[in-house]
Nucleic acid binder design. Structure first.
Length: 824
DNA sequence: AGCACGCCGACT
DNA sequence: GTCGGCGTGCTC
């Protein structure tokens, strides 16, 4: 029986209004080949413009009237781009993060694989210049003239060159009048890379015969034949370099039939240097226990999630490596996530050194082509291990056994673009779908993760000893208020200044750390350390220079900055805002003979610049390295004996509930850079708040004590992990309209949630108020924060979806972030 | 988001 | 009449 089949297709159209499956008829010839997860080309909209789509369902009835249903035009590729598991994962992400289908799928698919429709237009035959002149419409005349002069052109070029608004309508009109022809081409952004290879095409036994047929004076050709006697095949480039010959010599030999030139696809390889292979290391008692416990769990098919809490230098990586090796023996694949900033050659080398070409690397500095090739290596099963940043969690393995997330507490695992996913949550879901095991590792686990471990949701493993029993570097805390009392107004305390000087004399290296993140600064009293805080939110107030007010980024409270300190009545109220650049300047002035390097986002934009700076430090060409978080991870320089933390308060006073946690993590990690060689290290930490628990516990290297203090505060003030936070930002160019719509929407939201739930504190709505960044690119931004207790989240999301997505009032832009990293 | 349709004013 | 501008509403 000839039954009709239909496909539900998610169309590549970035609009909340088309964010749903559309039914298409499957043509008979594709009935048996079509599968869920396949890419298709479908006609969409009035103009039946061909757009790309993803098949999410195949069924034998259509939801809508059959007369409306169009047919699928073409299937792209012969196997699904998204496996069944990845499709499920995508749909789960859509609901979890309230994102659009197409955004989710585009995140999962490799960048650059999607094809773009390019339109070219050309003048029809026999159109004369006279005819063009008689066209009344100015825009149409411009287009025709351009085509007359330049021949066929792409619509994009026309748009740029002629600057015509709504150019497509003019083009459509011209086509109707039969003056031009439109040609559409579907092109992929990334092309496969090909390389020419030369193959021997003669029998080496008949070499004499071959040589007879070559002119005695054709030295280069003889040279090539000699070379090809010893090599069956060689890259054309290499052949030309090695024999110092030109392409014409090679070509003439090809014409004679002695060699063949063949174009073969080669996969780009982002690892361009030879990395020596390394061997397994002997495990310590603790490490062995770790590997055994996890492996036993895997063998029993339990697939638990583990947290390895290991102090810096306790050898977590070796644990990962040996577990990966065990997975290889089981023919299972592994994904290793590391934070983008620590995805340095040093990290990559550890994995490539152990497993060689079984490893693929994915990070943001790869070119589109490199990324595409790495993706295909994974998909085709050519590699078994992926080391990469956040998005590597979507590596298309088909027999996944293990996911490792190192430095689990890092904020870069949460995406800042829609879908605003958390790689840890996605990893957990992926492990659940594909029966794999998840390992989180950190010296300073995030409060949320450690809480889960305490609750027994995650299994906790501890590595408390450093390899070789090396001591943790002692941390000296300098109270900068005292420095001020003693008349020292510089950014260096006396101790730090002396220590740097001493280090310079001893030819040892120094790292100076300053976290300059954030544009707005905070207000503090230099005499008593008072920091302006919001009394409702326990969050530092941010100083806004343009309006000269202090604002709370959580509840919107705003007040004038004090001119005298409310605590000690001193006049030393200051705003703080020293960045790494300023530090560099001061260091150069204070220590004119020192060789100084700075490493932050500004100095490492270019590919490889990161490595260049680190090489300089490694070679001893730098005495003092100044940097942001970028230098807090993975760096291992034995000659660095001093770490100076210029102002621990910068992170501490960020208007964010995670600021204490971040401070503890940063001090611990930056401090860990000191004393990695023979000489014992030293850490000097400058602060205006030496009594703060995150600083005191960091000094003692006491994570547990810090956790206990922090979790109590989170509980008292209703912060994660005790609530979920949803951050909604609405944006529009018209501020008045935005303001009105915001209030209107929030009223509807409150009504739908029900005043009952709001009253008893299960759902708290803060705002609306202007967002911390109140205007971006001409768009005014307003923000609503919702705090929601555990089991109400699903209910709340449903309502948010109804209110903010399905009914977008007045076409206002809405962005939703569930459990954001920070609300800045 | 794009795109067509439709209504309106300006200009031949 | 015809062209272009902009508001409205729909997309299998």
């Amino acid at each position: 029986m000839n039954k009709r089949l239909f496909a539900d297709v998610i169309v590549d159209n970035k609009s909340t209004k088309t964010d749903r499956p559309f039914s298409y008829l499957i043509p008979d010839e594709h009935k048996f080949t079509i599968k869920r997860g396949m890419r298709v080309l479908v006609p969409f909209g009035f103009g039946n413009k061909l757009v790309e789509g993803i098949v999410v369902n195949v069924k034998n009835s259509s939801d809508v009237d059959i007369s409306k249903v169009k047919s699928i035009e073409e299937i792209i590729g012969n196997k699904p781009i998204l496996t069944e598991e990845m499709l499920k994962l995508g749909i789960w992400m859509k609901n979890k993060y309230l994102a659009q289908y197409i955004d989710v799928f585009k995140t999962i698919m490799p960048t650059g694989i999607s094809k773009k429709l390019k339109q070219y237009v050309s003048l029809n035959n026999g159109i004369s210049f006279e005819e063009i002149k008689n066209i009344k419409s100015e825009n149409q005349k411009k287009i025709l003239k351009y085509l007359y002069d330049n021949g066929e052109s792409s619509v994009d070029i026309l748009k740029n060159k002629l600057k015509i608004k709504n150019i497509s309508s003019s083009i459509k009109a011209l086509e109707k009048k039969n003056l031009i022809t439109i040609r559409s081409i579907l092109a992929s952004e990334v092309k496969k890379k090909y390389k020419k290879f030369v193959f021997r095409n003669f029998n080496t036994f008949n070499i004499q015969k071959v040589l007879q047929n070559i002119n005695k004076r054709a030295f280069k050709q003889l040279e090539i034949i000699k070379f090809m006697c010893n090599n069956e095949s060689v890259a054309l480039n290499d052949l030309m370099i090695k024999t110092e010959s030109s392409l014409s010599s090679v070509k003439s030999l090809e014409n004679k039939g002695y060699i063949k030139i063949v174009e073969k696809e080669i996969k780009r390889n982002p690892i361009n240097k030879k990395i020596p292979r390394t061997k397994k290391l002997e495990l310590t008692e603790e490490q062995k226990n770790c590997v055994d416990t996890i492996y036993k769990d895997i063998s029993e098919g339990k697939n638990n999630t583990f947290l390895i809490h290991g102090v810096t230098g306790s050898g977590k990586t070796e644990v990962y490596l040996q577990l990966i090796e065990k997975m290889l023996q089981k023919e299972k694949q592994s994904i290793v996530l590391v934070p983008e900033i620590s995805l340095t050659p040093q990290t990559v080398e550890r994995f490539v050194g152990r497993f060689g070409d079984k490893v693929a690397v994915l990070h943001s500095k790869l070119s589109l082509g490199e990324r595409y090739d790495e993706w295909r290596k994974i998909r085709e099963g050519k590699v078994k291990i992926v080391v990469g940043a956040r998005s590597a969690i979507f590596a298309p393995f088909d027999n996944l056994g293990l996911i490792i997330i190192d430095e689990e507490h890092e904020t870069s695992y949460k995406s800042s673009m829609s879908p605003k996913y958390d790689a840890i949550e996605v990893a957990q879901k992926r492990c659940e779908l594909e029966n794999a095991t998840l390992i989180l590792g950190s010296a300073t686990p995030s409060i949320e993760t450690y809480y889960k471990a305490q609750q027994g949701e995650i299994k906790l493993l501890t590595l408390s000893k450093r390899i070789n029993n090396r001591k943790m570097p002692p941390i000296e805390i300098i109270d900068m208020k005292e420095e001020l009392d003693n008349g020292n107004k510089s950014i260096f305390s006396k101790s730090l200044y002396e220590a740097i000087k001493e280090n310079l004399q001893n030819k040892k290296q120094t790292i100076l750390f300053l976290n300059r993140r954030g544009f707005s600064t905070f207000i503090s009293c230099r005499k008593c350390g008072y920091v302006a805080k919001c009394n409702k939110c326990d969050i530092s107030l941010t100083y806004h220079l343009s309006e000269n007010i202090l604002k709370c980024h959580y509840c919107g409270l705003a007040k004038k900055p004090p001119t005298i300190c409310p605590e000690c009545k001193s006049k030393y109220i200051k705003y703080f805002g020293v960045g790494t650049q300023k530090v560099e300047e001061i260091v150069k002035r204070t220590f004119p003979k020192a060789r100084v390097a700075r490493m932050d986002v500004d100095t490492t934009i270019r590919k490889g610049s990161h490595q260049k700076i680190l090489d300089k430090v490694k070679n001893g060409d730098v005495d003092i390295l100044i940097g942001t978080q970028m230098i807090s991870k993975g760096l291992d320089f034995p000659n660095v004996t001093l770490v100076g933390i210029i102002a621990a308060d910068i992170t501490l006073n960020l208007p964010d509930f995670k600021s204490a946690e971040r401070t503890f993590q940063l001090i611990t990690q930056v401090g860990g850079r000191a004393g990695r060689g023979e000489t014992e290290g030293r850490v000097i930490l400058q602060t205006y708040e030496p009594e703060h628990y995150s600083i005191k516990t960091a000094k003692e290297h006491d994570y547990i004590n810090f956790y206990n203090k922090e979790i109590a505060i989170r509980k008292e003030f209703d912060y994660p992990p005790f609530v979920d936070i949803i951050n909604i930002i609405m944006a529009d160019t018209d501020e008045k309209k935005l303001y009105n719509t915001c209030y209107k929407t929030i009223d509807i939201l409150k009504e739908k949630i029900g005043y009952e739930k709001i009253k008893n504190g299960n759902i708290k709505i803060l705002g609306p108020h202007p967002a911390p960044i109140s205007k971006i690119k001409g768009y005014h931004r307003w923000q609503v924060l919702i705090k929601c207790k555990g089991n109400h989240l699903a209910f709340l999301k449903k309502i948010i979806k109804k209110v903010f997505i399905n009914t977008t009032y007045e076409n206002i832009k809405v962005s939703i972030d569930i459990n954001p990293n920070s609300i800045l």
